Lab assay of single mutants.
Amino acid sequence: MKVIFLKDVKGMGKKGEIKNVADGYANNFLFKQGLAIEATPANLKALE
C-alpha cells in the first residue's frame, strides 16, 4: 500500500515521502499512530 509519511519514522521514511509499505503495517501502526496517510489521488494532490 502506498502511504504518505506525516512524520519521520525511523527506518521507514521521512515526512512528506511516498513509499510502499505492507498493508498490515500501514493499517495497524502508521495510520493508528497518525504517522502516515494513504496515498490516494486526493491526498497526493493536497501534498503538492
Results as ranks from 00 to 15, higher is better:
35 L>Q: 04
30 L>T: 01
11 G>K: 05
10 K>E: 14
44 L>A: 03
14 K>R: 11
38 E>H: 07
9 V>T: 03
30 L>R: 00
48 E>N: 10
21 V>R: 00
7 K>E: 14
4 I>N: 00
39 A>P: 02
32 K>R: 10
9 V>F: 03
5 F>T: 00
36 A>Y: 01
42 A>M: 07
15 K>Q: 09
38 E>V: 05
47 L>R: 07
45 K>P: 04
30 L>K: 00
26 A>W: 12
18 I>K: 02
13 G>Y: 05
4 I>G: 00
35 L>W: 11
14 K>D: 06
40 T>Q: 03
17 E>S: 06
17 E>G: 03
21 V>Q: 01
11 G>S: 04
3 V>K: 00
3 V>Y: 00
9 V>S: 01
32 K>L: 14
29 F>L: 10
33 Q>Y: 15
20 N>F: 14
47 L>N: 07
11 G>H: 08
15 K>M: 10
37 I>G: 01
7 K>T: 12
3 V>D: 01
28 N>E: 11
7 K>H: 12
39 A>V: 06
6 L>E: 01
8 D>H: 06
42 A>P: 04
2 K>F: 12
5 F>G: 01
11 G>F: 07
1 M>G: 03
44 L>P: 03
24 G>M: 12
38 E>P: 11
16 G>S: 05
45 K>R: 14
18 I>Q: 06
30 L>G: 00
6 L>Y: 01
36 A>I: 06
15 K>C: 11
39 A>M: 05
41 P>R: 08
2 K>Y: 13
36 A>S: 01
44 L>Y: 03
2 K>M: 13
25 Y>H: 07
2 K>R: 12
47 L>M: 11
24 G>W: 13
26 A>P: 04
34 G>R: 08
28 N>R: 09
10 K>D: 13
24 G>I: 14
16 G>F: 09
13 G>V: 03
17 E>H: 05
26 A>E: 09
30 L>A: 01
8 D>P: 05
4 I>C: 05
9 V>Y: 04
21 V>I: 10
18 I>G: 01
28 N>P: 02
28 N>M: 11
47 L>C: 10
45 K>D: 11
40 T>H: 04
35 L>E: 03
20 N>P: 05
21 V>W: 03
14 K>V: 12
28 N>C: 14
18 I>M: 07
23 D>M: 14
6 L>P: 00
41 P>I: 11
12 M>V: 14
24 G>Q: 13
32 K>C: 14
11 G>P: 08
31 F>W: 03
41 P>W: 08
33 Q>D: 11
38 E>A: 11
7 K>I: 09
4 I>S: 01
39 A>K: 01
42 A>H: 09
22 A>Y: 11
12 M>I: 13
2 K>T: 09
48 E>Q: 13
4 I>M: 06
20 N>M: 15
6 L>C: 10
33 Q>T: 12
19 K>E: 04
14 K>Y: 11
30 L>W: 04
40 T>Y: 04
12 M>L: 11
9 V>R: 01
44 L>Q: 08
40 T>G: 04
23 D>E: 15
